[in-house]
Design a protein around this nucleic acid. Structure first.
Lengths: 233, 233
DNA sequence: GTCTATACCGTGATAGAC
DNA sequence: GTCTATCACGGTATAGAC
């Protein structure tokens, strides 16, 4: 419980890949992000990476496992950044310099997401779209990795949000986190329902604009009185 | 502006399909919902429907077009129901029996979604998951249908929400609708981010429970003061 | 251990006979 | 309208070269 910079944060530097494996990984990432998972063929990847087709199944086990490796390489640093934010907030609270309010907790998520969305070298906004796909589809591989390696991240957010909303039951806190993360994910992923219907006045791709509109929405939603009453008239 | 039951609501009864086409449609729907789009092969569909493989490409143009047909058959009645709800609300307001508040407008979306989620004969909750997939992936076919045939539905919700939130600019109203619909979509689709991490105390599949938790969240989020201030302390 | 060539089977799509 | 035959392409597995 010290201000020491978190648990599994800087511990795991991630798996080391051979030169060919790295070339495959880089080529695959670009194509997955650009074309989507199923539209990207292994033959396209290996051609772009200038390696043999069978190298994919040798270094990674399958196309799905390759996707999981691509995903994990970007996700791990981002998740570590989230943990660092939570640690920093806890330290500030312990030092009496901050309080656990809803906005402070959610900013521990927003800041890393914002940084990720803006930095093309980290995969940029397009990586967030990949994450969004993972949510909807059911990639067994990715699912297992997330629950095995990063379950404690969600636990940390749950605890922090519970301290910010002491009047709510733990079940309600879980729902608020569930809903709040859903919005932010959808928002950062740039999936515009309205645009799907051809009627959008929202430019949903500018990260700063997203934050400006999403944060008040999420904070208000999470802080709502439990089912039934609503404060404003 | 009468209480007459809406514009394109009961107008289009949908395309008429031959007996073979209908058998294909029914078989495809079950498999798409159960296995997902790419995991469902045409050979599986035609086998279940007891028709020849080439019949799919004859009656529908392609696998994608078949999916679009399956989708449209369920979506159209649901969208008509949404229009009916909006018409009914307008009529109640015109008669002085109701006011345009955020909750009333959103219930025009929630009630049809709830009915759809609960009625297995309409595709049930699983159909909503298919819709969710369509959002994230980019089905060109479905996208075109939605913007061509149902753009005015979004326009109606935008106008209604604007009347419920007169203090917000039209850009902000669009954002609120965008974010609100995103949450509800994710919620009804049953995509649980927390569960993906293996740490969910939320049973995200019970439609009534979803409504109980989602409505206060969305109403509060949509009613939030624009970027910056937040009401409660 | 690492990389390559190649074969296998299932996929969506199509042409042409009936 | 329907069916058979065939096509190109997909992921995967393996045998063997270095």
């Amino acid at each position: 419980m010290k201000s020491s910079p978190s648990s599994a944060a800087d511990a795991d530097p991630g798996p080391k890949y051979s030169e060919t494996a790295t070339r495959i990984l880089n080529a695959a990432e670009g194509l997955f992000v650009e074309l989507g998972l199923e539209a990207t063929s292994l033959r396209l990847i290996t051609q772009k990476a200038a390696v043999n087709l069978a190298a994919v199944n040798y270094h990674f086990r399958s196309k799905d496992a390759l996707f999981e490796a691509v995903f994990a390489r970007r996700f791990a640093p981002w998740a570590r950044e989230c943990l660092r934010e939570l640690d920093a907030l806890e330290a500030r609270v312990a030092a009496g310099k901050a309080v656990f309010d809803v906005e402070a907790v959610m900013m521990c998520y927003v800041r890393p997401a914002l940084a990720l969305s803006k930095d093309p070298s980290l995969g940029g906004a397009l990586f967030v779209r990949l994450f969004s796909r993972v949510l909807v589809e059911n990639h067994r591989q990715v699912r297992e990795t997330l629950s095995r390696d990063w379950g404690h991240l969600v636990a940390r957010y749950t605890v922090a949000l519970g301290r910010a909303l002491p009047q709510l039951s733990s079940e309600e806190v879980a729902w608020r986190l569930h809903l709040g993360l859903s919005v932010m994910f959808h928002a950062f992923a740039g999936n515009d329902i309205l645009k799907l219907f051809g009627r959008s006045a929202v430019s949903a791709r500018d990260p700063d604009l997203i934050v400006k509109h999403v944060v008040p929405f999420v904070v208000a939603g999470m802080s709502a009185a439990p089912h039934g009453r609503h404060p404003a008239a």
